[in-house]
Amino acid sequence: MTTAKFDELIHPSTRLSLVATLAAADWAEFAFLRERLGLSDSALSKQLATLEEAGYVATERRVSGSRRKVRARLTPAGRDAFDGHIAALQAIVDATRPAEGSTTRS
């Protein structure tokens, strides 16, 4: 069972999208992430480096033909952190529902 735990590192919008994308995949190429998230090379590299330092993401450099490609994947720790963060966000939303309901009724 996932324990709800708000994660300040994952929460910023760009990083959340990046981690959510990686959470739905086994791995993704740097070019795919850059295109889907609409980030520059340097911005994406910075976000990946931050997540990699935290142990949430692992990157692998591969040579394909004459090109060097970077492949990123979420680590088990990153997956746990993401699941916990989503559970925490859901808990915040759920906590306000009864209050919203009583406001509507009054």
């Binding site: 708000f6 929460h11 919008s13 959340l16 999208s17 990046l18 959510a20 994308t21 739905a24 889907r36 989503i86 966000l89 859901q90 915040i92 939303v93 906590a95 306000t96």
Partner: peptide, 16 residues
């Protein structure tokens, strides 16, 4: 983080 922000973040994650 209020509920609106949490909802927006969940929507962002779902979109991704």
């Amino acid at each position: 983080v209020d509920s609106e922000q949490a909802r927006a973040s969940l929507a962002e994650a779902d979109r991704a």
